[in-house]
């Protein structure tokens, strides 16, 4: 394995008195697909939000592509250029059209010429299979379409890593498939991904590594086959029993 693109080492984080992340360690190699699962409140979102510093960690080391995250503004900027993020609630900008949502960051942050940004954006919309919606406002799209736009928006800066925080859990069941398809496609192209999701079918098919979190700790890290067949940890077993049992 080459040097990891994401390095999380002994990270601790508190919200006031509340200890959310406890000695979290994780390494993600280039091209690796990691699926994170665990009960609600276990700190999954907090962990991946630390990776692009939407949250600050208080101790330990987080580095992306060798750039360590800390108080330094330049480092944070550099990491955010390399990391795309997709949220549970889409967080598209409702006052901008789909195309404007996509071109905003390339033009304003990366300084790409508007023409070029537009053609890149259109290509990405083709890839998420909604080029015909380019002129619409987010409010006029279905949830699945919005989430695909959000994925395209995150891809616009040509990130090296994509973070997904429960991208399908705000969607109606019939729209989950279309978003997972796009994500699978992305994985097939070799994108490095960290996904928080409870879609176990997707995890089985796509993941290289499964991560299970509970109460702020990473309890188990294993390849999917081993993770689903013979989980080492009792808590993992109980959790899997609950969500697969249904």
């Amino acid at each position: 394995m080459s040097t990891p693109i994401i390095e999380i080492k002994d990270v601790n984080k508190w919200y006031g008195e509340f200890h959310v992340l406890k000695d979290v360690c994780l390494e993600v190699a280039k091209g690796e697909k990691v699926v994170v699962c665990g009960p609600s409140g276990s700190g999954k979102s907090t962990m991946i939000r630390c990776i692009n510093r939407l949250e600050e960690h208080q101790s330990g080391r987080i580095a992306v592509d060798g750039i360590e995250l800390g108080d330094d503004v330049k480092a944070v900027e550099a990491v955010r250029r390399r990391v795309g993020m997709v949220f549970q609630s889409f967080n598209l900008f409702p006052h901008l059209t789909v195309l404007e949502n996509l071109t905003l960051a390339p033009v304003k942050v990366a300084g790409v010429a508007p023409r070029e940004a537009e053609s890149t954006a259109m290509a990405l919309l083709e890839r998420v299979r909604i080029p015909e919606q380019a002129g619409k406002f987010p409010g006029q799209l279905s949830g699945g379409q919005q989430q695909r736009v959000a994925i395209a928006r995150a891809l616009c800066l040509k990130p090296a890593v994509m973070l997904f925080d429960e991208p399908t859990s705000a969607l109606d069941p019939e729209m989950v498939g279309e978003v997972l398809d796009v994500m699978s496609g992305l994985a097939a192209e070799g994108m490095t991904m960290i996904c928080v999701t409870h879609e176990m079918g997707f995890a089985r098919a796509v993941a290289d590594t499964m991560v299970f979190m509970d109460e702020g700790r990473i309890v188990e890290v294993a390849p999917p086959a081993q993770f689903f067949q013979s989980p080492a940890n009792e808590r993992t077993r109980r959790f899997l029993g609950k969500i697969i049992g249904h």
Partner: peptide, 8 residues
């Protein structure tokens, strides 16, 4: 120093 958010 100027790179530091706190310092800014």
């Amino acid at each position: 120093l100027w790179g530091s958010r706190r310092f800014r």
